[in-house]
Design a protein around this nucleic acid. Structure first.
Length: 469
RNA sequence: GGUCCCAUCGUCUAGUGGCCUAGGACGCUGCCCUUUCACGGCGGAAACACGAGUUCGAACCUCGUUGGGAUCACCA
């Protein structure tokens, strides 16, 4: 049997982090088993669905690198088929018209709540004849669910979960206006698309029981369910669009790499021994339900930062440069010249070593695009005070005299200078760093010298050494 | 409130009856490396929610308690 999974978001908002993880797990599961991964947009709520949200979801999936098989299925386009299934259920006596008014329903709920029962429909139209129907009510169609016995969910993650059927009421299949509800369409579409495995948040666990009743009423094969624990916010409550969840685009904008997000999401609720950094190829090879945990997890930005730093160091320079360029231009408040790009390129190996995100990398790269004379931060201002300008004035001609501006030559020159003056290396290195960058957080001093080049280096040194003490 | 789910360091987790005086990672922290910042290396503090069973033996099995979460729409 070929495994077919799906991700079925409703386009009522952005693709949030929990949805992204659900998509990842389904994608991984399908890829691991050599099956298919489908994408279906659950837009049956036409009032709340927006094209912007659909676009955000598709963009988010693409950014995360989660490719789907076949065409995207739009649930709203299947409405005819959904109604058809409802008719069949009606004809076979497995569904019925219900003429309850909204007021009656509200009353039912209040009574149930007052009596401490589950809040549910009491089935009052189950066996009533249509001739008793009141005037002016568009009836809904409800499933005639079994009232005795229990419904068992054999869940890949949660194990066997049973619900007593008298706890499950007759759910609405078709609204008064004839449009299908989510409960009907999700089952019909999953069946029609041949979905074999349904992995979703465990907030759907209760729904699964009623959906199984519908599968049984239609005499369809029941797919394998796997209800994964939700991701909670820092306060331990469900992360939702209204509660702290950010769109996947927000993570992109914060400078996180898709591979880092993937890795971090993977480790939320799934593990493979003590492994932390797991490449996507490795994840596909390893991913299966036995690694899934049952308890909810919280999203930890600190750990994401660490993971992102790992992938930053792993990324190739050009990719990072492309990602940083827009922000760099903004931060520099001017157009970047070819010489800037050149410096940025040669600085990238040193820069990516000390940044956990793209914004941090940009911040650290700013010394390259700053215009002279440099503004000193506090530490640098201290470093160029006192004897520093004098020392810089002395080393400047030595550096200027170097014919080959190579790392070895520069290294030898500065070290020799320290030895000759009988000063510790740091005594000359610190003022140099300050003069060259104006900052405390920089690549190694020889890297800086090489990146800036001889002319720019000497000019920056001169800015400090020429200043009257 | 009814129903359902969950419960190991602050966080993510390993652990499936003896290998556990509970391991790893993030974060925190001491030291080392070192021209700054990172990276890296070596240490440290830090957890089996509680109570009963079952068993020769329980983080692992059972029950209860407590705590947390989800869900109860003509939303998805």
């Amino acid at each position: 049997m070929t495994v077919i999974t799906r991700f079925a978001p409703s386009p009522t908002g952005f693709l949030h982090i929990g949805g992204a993880r659900t998509a990842l797990f389904n994608w991984l599961y399908a890829r691991h088993h050599g099956g298919q991964f489908r994408l279906r947009i659950e837009d049956t709520d036409r009032a709340r669905s927006t094209p912007e949200a659909m676009e955000a979801i598709v963009d988010g999936m693409k950014w995360l690198g989660l490719d789907w098989d076949g065409e995207i299925v739009y649930q709203s386009k299947q409405a005819g088929r959904h109604a058809e299934v409802a008719s069949q259920l009606l004809a076979e006596g497995n569904a019925y018209y219900c003429y309850c008014t909204p007021e009656e329903l509200t009353e039912m709920r209040e009574t149930a709540k007052a009596e401490g029962r589950s809040i549910m429909y009491d089935g009052r139209w189950r066996d009533r004849d249509a001739s008793e129907a009141p005037e002016g009510i568009d009836p809904v169609v409800r499933l005639k669910a079994p009232r005795q016995g229990e419904t068992l969910i054999e869940d890949q993650v949660q194990g066997s979960v049973k619900f007593r059927n008298d706890q499950l009421d007759d759910m609405v299949l078709l609204r008064g206006d004839g449009s299908p509800t989510y409960m009907l369409s999700v089952v019909v579409d999953d069946h029609d698309m041949g979905i074999t495995h349904i992995m979703r948040g465990d907030d759907h666990l209760n729904n699964a029981a009623r959906q199984i009743q519908l599968y049984k009423a239609m005499d369809w094969d029941i797919p394998v369910f796997g209800h994964i624990p939700l991701i909670h916010g820092a306060d331990g409550a469900k992360l939702s669009k209204r509660h702290g969840a950010l769109g996947i685009d927000a993570y992109r904008d914060m400078g996180y790499l898709p591979e880092a997000i993937r890795n971090h999401l993977l480790r939320l609720g799934w593990s493979h021994g003590d492994d932390e950094f797991i490449s996507t190829e490795q994840a596909i090879e390893w991913f299966d339900v036995d690694g899934l945990g049952k308890s909810p997890s919280r999203f930890d930005f600190k750990k994401l930062d660490n993971v992102n730093g790992h992938y930053m160091r792993q990324s190739d320079d050009q990719t990072l440069l492309d990602l940083a360029l827009p922000g760099l231009t903004t931060a520099a408040s001017r157009d970047l010249e070819p010489v800037d790009i050149e410096r940025l390129t040669s600085a990238m190996p040193a820069l990516k070593e000390r940044a956990k995100s793209i914004p941090e990398l940009i911040e650290n790269a700013l010394f390259l695009t700053d215009s002279r004379p440099l503004t000193m931060d506090d530490k640098s201002a201290t470093a160029v005070a006192g004897d520093a300008p004098g020392l810089l004035a002395e080393i400047s001609p030595l550096l200027a005299a170097l014919e080959d501006w190579t790392r070895e030559a520069v290294d030898a020159c500065v070290r020799q200078f320290a030895t000759d003056r009988d000063i510790k290396f740091g005594v000359i290195a610190q003022p140099l760093r300050a003069a060259l960058t104006g900052r405390a957080k920089t690549p190694g001093i020889f890297d800086v010298l090489m990146i800036l080049g001889q002319d720019e280096s000497l000019a920056r040194i001169a800015d400090i050494s020429n200043k009257p003490a």
